[in-house]
Structure formats: C-alpha cells, structure tokens
Computed example of a mutant assay.
Amino acid sequence: MISAIGLGLRAQKGGAAVVAMGVRAGAPKLILSTLLPTHREGDRLSLEPYRVAYETAQAPHPGAVADPATAVAEGRRRQDMLAEAGLRNILHALERAEGTLVRAGLLVNRAGWVTDLLDYSLSWPEHVPVAEALAVREALRSGLSRCGIGTVELDEKSLADRAAQALALSPVEIDAQLKAFGATAGKPWRKEQKLACLAAWLLAVDAPITGSSAS
C-alpha cells in the first residue's frame, strides 16, 4: 500500500506538467504523470490572454474584445476554472492509488517579482510569453486553493541542490532515478516533468522542505 502521495506541478503556456509520487515499502514510486490543460482547443483567450490583450491594445478592430483588461480578466477566469476542474480529476485518480495526498509542490522561479502582468505585457511585448506562464501559475494556485490542497512553493533553480541534501543522494543518483521514473511514465518526459517529479518525490518521502506556503 502507498503510504503518502506528493504532487508536483510545473506551469507552462497552456497548462502544467503534473506528477504524483508515492512511497511504498519505503521506496519512491511514480503514481501519475499527466498534462493539466488550462485552455480549451481553439480558445485563444484561455491559451494566451496576454497576447490577445497586447494585440487588442495595438490594433483594436470591430468585434475585438472591448479592452485589454477585459480580455485578460475573461481569459484568466477560464484558466482558473479549467485548472480547478483538472485538479479535481487528478484527485479522483489519486484516490484509486490508496494513498493519502500529503500536499502539492508548485514550482516557481525568479519571475515572481512581476506583480502587474498586464502592464508588464503591454510595456514589454517580448516578455508576453513570461506573462502567459505566470498566468497559468496563478490559475494553479487558485485551483489548488479551491480544491483544499495544501501547497508549498519551491524555487526550481535550487530544487536539485535541495533534493540532493534532503534525499541524501548525489545529483548523478537523482538524475538516474528520474530517468527510471520517466521510463515508467512514458512521453512526454522533459525538463518540466522531471522538475514536477522531483518536487513530488520530496513531498512524498516527507523530506524537510521550507518555502512559501499557500495553504
């Protein structure tokens, strides 16, 4: 029986890489690896609200969204709704694993200093892709909160060093184990999935983790 389950999430444009890890007989076990979409097919507002907002500000045309702020508000509303729905589906799937969800680890990075994503996007159009990923992260925060999932935010830049110390494994050993998990998970198994997996692994084994909590 799996005694504990940790959930790792790494935001990207359009959704998030989500990995669940459990512990069975003292050993880590990959439970789930999936993509959680925060957009609907063909719906640009939910896929890239800040790109739509920038285009609206630059070249408004008949039939366009009334203004950039309106575009972003509606796009973000849709993202929040989809993130919550996706997380509830994941929780239902985890119930069948006969484990207890400990908490979730949400990967963050230094781009968190950006507080006004709309102004950031309108002022620096080359940074719109950053705003899109941060919007997904906000949707994940909202979904995790609405689902009542305790969350800790982990800096992805320092995650590998933290894991090596907490798990008492060398970086080479951790990398080898992540590759083994990937063989079980199947594709895609890129950087995003590996980061989410490592975050979930730490939470599953109940390694000492400090970071900002988002209840």
Rank of each mutant, 00 (worst) to 15 (best):
A131Y: 02
G86E: 10
L122R: 08
A111W: 12
D116E: 09
E95N: 12
D116H: 09
I90H: 05
N109A: 11
A97D: 08
I90Y: 08
G143R: 02
I90A: 08
L140H: 11
E126M: 14
E98M: 10
A104F: 08
E84P: 02
A97H: 07
A93N: 10
L91N: 03
S142K: 11
G112T: 12
E138G: 08
R110A: 13
V114Q: 10
E126D: 15
A139F: 06
L87G: 08
E84Q: 15
E132H: 04
R137H: 11
L144W: 04
G99V: 01
L122W: 07
R88W: 11
V136P: 01
V130E: 12
G112W: 10
G148F: 04
L87C: 11
A133W: 03
V128I: 15
P129T: 06
L122I: 08
L117A: 03
A135R: 03
A111E: 14
E126A: 15
E95A: 13
N109Q: 10
E132K: 03
V136R: 03
V108C: 06
S123P: 00
G112C: 06
W124E: 15
D116M: 08
L118W: 01
R96P: 00
A135P: 07
L118A: 07
N109L: 00
L101D: 00
A133P: 02
L118N: 01
C147P: 09
R96K: 15
H92Y: 10
D116C: 09
G105D: 08
D119C: 09
L101W: 00
G148A: 04
T115D: 14
G105Q: 07
L107W: 01
V136E: 01
R146L: 13
N89Q: 15
A133C: 12
H127P: 00
